[in-house]
């Protein structure tokens, strides 16, 4: 039996078109034309204990709605969720003791009081013993460097610092599962790496099952073996990242900026014929290629050696492109 079982899960939001102006506001109160919005549309999956799964999709694809149903915040319109034997929204009181949740956009800490005081409140709410509390704080401090932050009010923390505190807060009660919604959003490279390193340890050493949403593919590449892709409320792909790469032509691109204006003759470079070339203007040109056929290092080496290059930018496939690619092929299988 899996830890998380989701069957035919759907969530339909009722929304209505707001009319503008004062008169419109009054009309809104009495006459509303409701529209159904299918945020999540009959998805099914299961996750085993100890897995670390990336849940990806573009903005508005239904990631957050799924997470909110899994964590018991939203009641599903139809379908079934079972997590560790609990039905999240129904067994909220006992269920929430077994999970930790971090929303990248929002803190769970109390805004006006020092971090450590928030922690102590959580300790009380979750009934954590003094010994466990001290031990866990010590462990988290090793990776997250919390000590310096503990006595600062949350509102004075930077985004990266706040995220570190939020991560620690979500794990104080030793949950079985950690749900993260965009944990790296808005963070700089160093802070992102910090978060990823911590999550890896949490998963490997504390054996916490992790489900995280992101639209940063590098999060997934560094952390998750398994990914689920959702778009327009439907599950498009569920499997290993490597498998996805195998099956889809993932186009990467290299952007070049030249030192001086000029026209580049691609034929003279002796490149693989699969590489697509475009001159954008007299200063910039673009190579589109498939990493599986031409490693990016090789392409860059050739280009830099034979052209007067000022700057090279390598851009990997984005989630949006992967989703587009899946659609253009009419599905994966």
């Amino acid at each position: 039996m899996s830890l998380i079982e989701v069957r035919n899960l759907s969530k339909i939001f009722k929304t209505f078109d707001r009319k503008e102006g004062v008169w419109g506001g009054i009309q809104n109160l009495f006459v509303r034309q409701y529209r159904d919005l299918k945020a999540v549309d009959a998805i099914s999956f299961s996750i085993d204990q100890g897995e670390m799964v990336g849940y990806i999709g573009a903005n508005g694809a239904g990631k957050s709605t799924t997470i909110k149903m899994l964590t018991g915040i939203l009641v599903p319109t139809s379908g079934a969720i079972k997590v560790g034997g609990y039905i999240p929204f129904r067994d909220r009181n006992s269920y929430t003791r077994t999970i930790g949740v971090v929303f990248g956009q929002r803190t769970q800490l109390w805004w006006d009081i020092a971090v450590v005081e928030s922690f102590q409140l959580l300790k009380k709410i979750y009934n954590v013993s003094d010994k466990d509390y001290q031990e866990r704080l010590e462990t988290f401090d090793q990776v997250l460097n919390l000590k310096r932050l503990l006595h600062t009010p949350v509102r004075k923390l930077s985004l990266g610092q706040r995220m570190r505190c939020d991560l620690a807060a979500s794990l104080l009660h030793n949950p079985m599962i950690l749900f993260l919604d965009e944990p790296t959003i808005g963070l700089d490279v160093v802070a992102k790496e910090n978060v990823r390193q911590f999550l890896r340890r949490v998963n490997q050493e504390l054996k916490v099952t992790v489900l995280l949403t992101t639209h940063d593919l590098s999060d997934i590449e560094e952390l998750c073996r398994r990914i689920m892709i959702i778009d327009k409320g439907r599950l498009l792909f569920d499997g290993a990242l490597a498998e996805l790469r195998e099956r889809l032509a993932c186009k990467s691109q290299v952007l070049l900026e030249l030192k001086e204006p000029g026209k580049v003759n691609p034929a003279a470079l002796g490149l693989n014929s699969d590489i697509e070339f475009k001159q954008l203007d007299e200063m910039r040109c673009q190579f589109i290629f498939d990493k599986r056929i031409v490693p990016s290092a090789e392409l860059i080496k050739i280009v830099v050696n034979s052209l007067p290059v000022r700057d090279v930018v390598l851009e990997d496939t984005t989630i949006e492109e992967i989703v587009r690619e899946i659609y253009s092929r009419g599905g994966i299988e």
Binding site: T71, G72, I73, R92, N93, T96, R106, I125
Partner: peptide
């Protein structure tokens, strides 16, 4: 502001 999310995540009514 959606702060109620956090409220629902704690094991208290």
């Amino acid at each position: 502001e959606g702060r109620f999310d956090q409220v629902l995540l704690r094991p208290l009514h």
